[in-house]
Structure formats: C-alpha cells, structure tokens
Design a protein around this nucleic acid. Structure first.
Lengths: 240, 240
DNA sequence: CTAACGTCAATTGGATACAATCCCCTTGCC
DNA sequence: GGCAAGGGGATTGTATCCAATTGACGTTAG
C-alpha cells in the first residue's frame, strides 16, 4: 500500500464534511491518480485501518464509488478497483460525447460572465504542468471538462459529466500508453474559442475530435505493464 | 404509513440479491408510485422496522437513493424524499433530452433484431392500462424509455437514462396535475416508427416534443394538493 | 408578553461484535 | 497424476451498542 494513502482523515473532522465524504474523495483521488491500480482489492478493514476509521465508513464510501463505476463489488468477495472492459470504455465515451455536446450547446447559449476567465486560467494552469505528464496533468485535463460542465449552471449535468470524466480517467490510466496532453491543452483552447464565437457546430466537432482522439489512443494499445491486470482481464472473459 | 409498505422482505433472502438491494428497490418504487410523498421523512429505524431489517440496511439503501437523487439527507436530521425545485427539474429534463437524443442516434444505427417486438409489446401493455392513470401507468411510461436505452446495448447509457427517468417520475409526481398519458402512448408509437424509418431527425424531434410537453405540463402548474409540500418548498427557498 | 437560554428527548453518526458466505488449500480417492 | 470433496481462513453481511449533534420544549429574566 502506497505511503501516500497513510494520511489521517480526522484533523478537521466536523468541518461540515462527514467522514464518509472524506474517505470517498481520498479513495477517488487515489484511484484516478493510479495509486490504486485497476483490479486491486480494497478490503474494508485494511482501508479503514489505513485511514483510521471503521469499516462502516469505508463501506459507505465504497457504495458510492460503486455507483460511480470506479469500483466493482462481488458478493462476499469484496470491492475491487474497476477494470473497465474495452466495450465498457466505448460505452462510457459514447455517453461522454453526448453529455459534453449538451454542455457546449448550453454554454453557447448561456455562458456566465466570468466563465471565460475561469477557463483561461485553468488552461494556463494546465500549460504550466505540460511537461511533466503525471497524475496531476491527468487530473487537470479532467477538471477542465468538469469546469465546463459547471459553467452551464446545470448541477445535474455537471454531476454526470464529473462522474463520466472520472471514469474516463480510469480508462485512460488502464489503456493509454502515455497521456501526452500536449495537444489536449491546445484543443481545450480551441474549444473555448469556438464557444466564444458562438459556433456550436465547430465547438462540438472539436470536442468530438478531442474525445475521439483520446478514445482512439486508448483503444489502440492496452497498457501492458501489469501482468496481474492483463491476467485478471482474461480471467474475467473466461468467467463470463 | 401506507400498509402497502408492510411487506416482509426476507422470503427469498439469499436469492443472489442482498437485503440492501431489496430495501433499495422497494423504497424506490414506493417513492415513484407516490406511496412516499416528496418531503416525507424517512427515519431509519421506522423504515427498518417496517421492513423487518436493521437500521444498517436502511442506511445503505438511503445512501444509494441519495446518490440517485431521489432522497436528500441533512446532517444529523435524517433522510427525506427529495423535493426537486423547479430549477432542478429543468436541469434534469435538459440532461434527459440530451441522453435520449443519444439513445435515438444509437438505435437508428444499431437496433437489435428483437428490439421492435419488445417495444411494441411494451406499448401494448401501456395501452392496456391507458384508462386508469395510476402509479402503474407512470411506471410503465418511464419503463418505455428505459427499455429504449437498454436496447442500445450501452449499459452505461441505460443506467443514466434509468436514473434520470426515475427522477423525472418524481418530478412529475410533484408538479404535474394529471399524468394524462393518453398522448404519451401515441407518441411512443410514433417514436418507434421514426426510428424504424431511420429518420434520426424526426425521432429526435418527436422525443424532444414528447419530453418538452411533459416538462411543459409540469412547469405550468405545481401540484397543490398537499399543504405541507407547498410549505416546505417555500421553507426551502427561505432557508437558502 | 417576548425573547433568550438551558435542558431533554429523538435521531443519526460511527464502532464493534457476531454470523454467514465464499475462496483456496489440503487431502483422499480414483 | 488428476480430480473431487471437505475443512480452514479470511472477508463481507448484518445486528446491536455507544456517542454526538440537533431540534423542541419549557423556563426564566427583562
């Protein structure tokens, strides 16, 4: 277990956020940043003792993560970090394209005043970590899309986009060789420009291309650094 | 508490479905069918004792329902059946339109062989309960859309549509005067026909109109049969 | 009579204890 | 040597128990 997870959760316990929320977010970040790799087991008491909380809390957090599609639980077997199949990955990207098309439609229609400032600030922060393609750049790339969704003012939409983006991050972590967000940042800027021009078609097309490129890169070469990951994936096919 | 909820949950307890699942689904149906009205409190031990299970189970079920947006929980106050505001209702319908547009796109592209048979069978069952517009017709109307989504083969999409449709059912229960699914059944048939013709544009337009009509009906007149519901809604506005 | 304060009951937040289930490994048999 | 059945260990599923927070009521002072 990576030492990064050994942080204690209780310093600001009653800061309006419940313990479950804290564990939930920590686990989520750990999964997205690949501290917890796909297929890895998540025993309730192990996790709980790492965070200094009881199984009850971990359980609740795992339920949420399962609803988000980031972990799967098998009856009396426990929770595992999800290993999306290529088919599921395709499905996730299909939904994502639909949702983000709606985001663009809405933003062209009603982008808030400070929207472009926030977006450009975000792009700048993306550029600042452009070189070192680590977990941070993955997270920032995702947060750009989440920010877009939030700017629509539609919290329901923002929530779904957020979920989907996280799942995509997990998928990219599994399948993409290198995240190479070099072009992504440029594409983000172009999308902003298209929205500013009120050109829904171009913006949507750019977004489709953006996501399509990402998905395409992913499908081309399953990441093969982890033997257990590969084996368990084969094992899953066998079991079905 | 309605006696319909007094069913025991444990007859086929270990039938591959956990107690939490059972309670979750039962509560969900109770909410959708308006046995549990918006704003109603859901004390853990009361519910648990009604179903003959412990608070722990109810708790897990409530967590899931909260994730689905059907209940809201306030810190140390407990769980309540959600009372979506008009704004939130609008957001939900926006997302729904986007998702269902994608469903149609995909179905025109790849409707499975037995798809039309299933759809027509469903429409027939909708027509059979056309007169008595009760909870059943609400449920069936929703299940039509869920069936559409499932026929895409995209389980991720189907899941989101399912969630959204359930939320819409709750919204309709709150705001719509009468569900009057008279035209809805016709519209369902027309949508099927448009998909069969491969006419994406017409099918999408029909669907938009279908949902738009539903949303429009909803927004025109908030349901005013329950004083407590109205008051609590006003109270919520006050609290913000 | 009103408003603020203190106490109390009710309910959830969380932890621990017990039971059921499943996987895996061993062992015996073919 | 391989396969099947049984047992042990580990992990989840569920229930009960204690603590913390909140809302409400009653009391009291102004």
């Amino acid at each position: 277990m990576p030492s990064a997870l050994k942080t204690d959760v209780t310093p600001t316990m009653s800061d309006k956020t419940t313990l479950t929320d804290a564990v939930h977010q920590l686990l989520r970040r750990a999964i997205i940043e690949q501290a917890l790799k796909p297929g890895m087991r998540l025993p309730e008491d192990t996790v709980g003792e790492q965070f200094g909380v009881s199984r009850t809390i971990v359980r609740h957090a795992l339920v949420r993560l399962e609803n988000e599609g980031l972990v799967v639980t098998r009856r009396n077997r426990g929770a595992f970090v999800a290993e999306p199949s290529l088919e599921e990955a395709k499905h996730v990207f299909e939904v994502r394209r639909a949702l983000e098309a709606e985001v663009i439609r809405l933003l062209v229609e009603r982008m808030p005043r400070s929207g472009y400032d926030q977006l450009e600030a975000h792009v700048r922060s993306e550029e600042s970590v452009k070189g070192k393609d680590g977990p941070v750049s993955i997270r920032l790339a995702g947060e750009f899309h989440i920010l877009l969704a939030e700017l629509t003012g539609n919290h329901v939409l923002a929530r779904y986009v957020s979920e989907i983006v996280l799942r995509c991050s997990l998928i990219m972590a599994m399948y993409a060789k290198s995240h190479s967000s070099d072009c992504a940042v440029d594409e983000h800027s172009q999308i902003i420009a298209a929205i500013r021009d009120g050109d829904t078609r171009r913006a949507t097309s750019l977004m489709d291309h953006h996501l399509g490129a990402v998905a395409g890169r992913a499908e081309l070469e399953p990441k093969q650094d982890s033997v257990s990951s590969i084996l368990s994936r084969y094992g899953k096919e066998l079991a079905s």
